[in-house]
Write a protein that binds this DNA or RNA. Structure first.
Lengths: 229, 229
DNA sequence: ATTACTACTAAACGAGTAC
DNA sequence: TGTACTCGTTTAGTAGTAA
């Protein structure tokens, strides 16, 4: 993990780049740098020494000031920061969203729907796993989680098409890939007509979650929703 | 000028954004944030308090952790950093380059060329000023300055077209807009066939620089070359 | 569980100054 | 002019702990 000191140096490196030192050797005195950074000449000098030690800049000291060039390694550091920020600023959705809910016993309907062959085929094809015939029901307890769950609707989802058979119609289903308890990959499914309100989520996975994660009614479970790339 | 403390906070703000707090309210406990940042829970807590004080985040404390949303003002800070970096990473040329040289008496030829009407008209049109009929000659003294000057050739320049009259040919001239001694706008001119080598620059300006800046032979003069947008 | 206070430690900084 | 050392001061960070 990047420690605090590094961040301070990265800032100094950024200023050096603003003076053109990432493209060419720039003549920058410690006194000048200090003024630009709002620090003392001594601190600027030390920062340059440390940047040099890290190999982020190369330095030649002359009587008129330092000749400074940011090295490839230094530019890489700035690029890392840049791409980090770009992803944040340009991404349409947050990288992941976490929901938490309490396990409760459902009506057992989930199993019926999931094992319908025309659904199952699509789960395998579009989610990449053959779902255990049953759903884990989680009751969202806090306002925060309910609000988050409703925001999910605006996210891009894996779309499972509905179908008809001789008796009835099976509706369209939206899936959001998730990781359950940081361990198991699965999906939250969201039927357009749900028996439950917005305060419940139904989770499917390739395994029997209650057994795999030793879950009992009332246990709190964390589900991390992955956004699609 | 942005002081050091702000940068440490901005780093924390960036991490919060990586957790999605710039788009939505995110539930982040101080303990969790601390682990992600490689700091103690207490420090994370203090950072959150300070970010809140600055108005960069809004916070609601619940028994399960803090509900954190980066405010518009906080997002603006991140955007500032982002656009700063983007300019650096994507710009083809450094924002400005500084040259330093020593005043010396030229051959007086400059005046002859500059006052040629077909040159003068172009200076007015393309540089935006009517040049004083004469050039300030600066001898570049250090290797650094000579090297920088030669790099200038690769920059986009204001191009002044050559012409012929009955007697002879007047060559093509490249100009680089500059600011002399942080005070006067002017340009460095670079004839393709120069009487001087790469270690001399000729500066023109709308005023008589020697008088305006009280320059005498041997004085050191700083010239900041502006890159074109 | 949390957050965040107080008291203390560690690190970053700046003044003075040598070179 | 420059850089960069030592050393005292300031500031940031952590541990313990209360709420």
């Amino acid at each position: 993990m990047t420690e605090g000191r590094v961040w301070r140096l990265l800032f100094t490196l950024l200023k050096l780049a603003e003076m053109g030192a990432h493209r060419r050797t720039a003549k920058i005195s410690t006194e000048y740098l200090a003024r630009k950074l709002g620090m003392s000449q001594q601190t600027a000098s030390r920062h340059l020494i440390e940047l040099d030690d890290r190999g982020w800049i190369s330095r030649t000291i002359t009587p008129e000031g330092c000749l400074i060039k940011i090295t490839d390694s230094g530019v890489t550091e700035l690029k890392k920061l840049y791409s980090n920020l770009r992803l944040l600023m340009e991404a349409a959705y947050p990288p992941s969203v976490t929901l938490e809910g309490v396990v409760f016993m459902g009506l057992g309907e989930g199993a019926y729907y999931i094992s319908k062959e025309l659904y199952r085929k699509q789960f395998i094809e579009k989610l990449g796993f053959d779902p255990y015939p049953g759903t884990l029901n989680l009751k969202l307890t806090t306002d925060y989680d309910v609000k988050t769950r409703s925001e999910l609707e605006a996210y891009p989802a894996v779309e499972i098409e509905g179908f008809k058979n001789e008796n009835r119609t099976f509706g369209h289903v939206k899936c959001y890939p998730v990781i359950i308890e940081n361990k198991v990959k699965g999906a939250v499914i969201s039927a357009l007509r749900s028996h439950y309100g917005a305060s419940v989520i139904e989770v499917i996975a390739p395994v029997f979650l209650r057994k795999q994660l030793k879950l009992k009614d009332g246990h709190k479970v964390k589900v991390e929703v992955l956004t699609l790339p």
